[in-house]
Amino acid sequence: MSLLSWLRAPAPTLSDALKQRLARLPVPAPWRDCSLREQRWVVLDLETSGLNVNRDQVLSIGAVVIDDGAIDFAQQFERTLHRPAQKTTSSVLIHGLGPSALAAGCDPAEALLDLLEFIGDSPLLAFHAPFDQRMLARALKDSLGHRLQHPFLDVAELAPMLNPDTVLREAGLDDWITRFGLHVQERHHASADAQVTAELMLILLSQARRQQLDSPLQLEQQLSAWRRRMAHHPSL
């Protein structure tokens, strides 16, 4: 699908109840100058049918909350989406999502609206965030006609920025899990991956505070500057 046809795709038909819930959603907050501990963060992980952001689909969603400097186990989100037409491929099976699980999943519009209500006005964190951001944006447009406006921070960029002495070129989540000795019981499952990403983020938030970066706004600004340096000097 071309970008032009995507932009012109017809809006989905929604029930009045869904429209009312969409209308009640809070406006996402800009980067705040509060302390990192005061900020509520939502750590997101999506399992998808593949890596093509224009063609593949979101199959399941996992999210956890970091609040008051800790993972809040009372605030967790998990949904498998109803995708009965999804072909069973190796990319799908690695997530443990067989045909029966996808056939029994939640209506995508309901699940995605549940997610937006769970997120509220909080910023989002993800490992390799640009992929999750684009996949979520397309899913929201396709199922709800809704435009994603929440800011994202990429944990895959924060980790090397805050650990310049750690040489891990193009490191994946497993590399940073090993680097910090985190214990993982399960991988390639949305909720489990969101959980371990949140545990990694707690380490990074502690490092950020020790480096005099103690607000979401400061962290985002430092990351933007680091990204520009890496673009001009990739060997650093």
Rank of each mutant, 00 (worst) to 15 (best):
A171M: 06
E170P: 09
E47Q: 06
R37L: 06
P234V: 07
S90D: 12
R147H: 13
K19I: 07
S49E: 03
E157G: 03
V64S: 08
R32I: 10
L51A: 08
S100Q: 13
D132Q: 14
H82T: 04
D165H: 13
W31P: 00
H150N: 15
D33T: 10
R134G: 06
V92P: 12
L22F: 04
W176E: 00
A159C: 06
R187N: 03
V167Q: 13
L213N: 03
A74Y: 12
T88C: 07
Q57K: 12
H233M: 14
V167D: 14
L148Y: 09
L148Q: 09
F118L: 05
L168I: 15
D165T: 14
H189G: 03
G96S: 10
Q218A: 15
E78C: 06
N54G: 11
R147T: 13
A198L: 07
Q149N: 13
A11T: 08
G120R: 05
P123W: 12
S15L: 06
P12V: 01
A190C: 04
R210E: 13
L44C: 08
G98W: 09
V184C: 04
S90I: 12
R24E: 10
V42L: 10
T89F: 04
A111S: 03
R187M: 02
S143G: 04
E117I: 03
R40L: 03
R147C: 12
C34T: 14
L204G: 00
L22I: 10
I71F: 08
G120N: 08
P84T: 03
G120A: 03
D142I: 14
P30A: 01
V64N: 10
A198F: 05
S2M: 03
S191W: 15
L102I: 08
E199M: 01
P234S: 01
Q222R: 14
A9E: 13
G105E: 01
S143I: 06
P160I: 06
L200N: 05
A23V: 05
D33F: 01
A159Y: 00
S100V: 14
I177R: 06
L112Y: 09
Q185T: 14
L44W: 04
M201T: 07
D121H: 04
P10W: 02
M135C: 00
H128S: 11
H232G: 11
G181M: 06
L46Y: 02
S90N: 13
R21K: 04
F127V: 04
L213R: 07
S90R: 14
A190Q: 09
L59G: 00
V27Q: 13
A198C: 03
S5Q: 15
I94D: 10
H146N: 02
L173Q: 07
P12Y: 09
L7D: 07
S90Y: 10
D214S: 08
P84E: 01
R210W: 12
P160T: 05
R21L: 00
H188V: 10
D142H: 10
A139K: 01
G50C: 07
R37G: 05
D142T: 13
R8H: 12
A192F: 14
I94H: 00
L219S: 00
V167F: 15
Q222F: 12
R21S: 05
D154G: 02
H128Y: 14
L236M: 11
E38G: 09
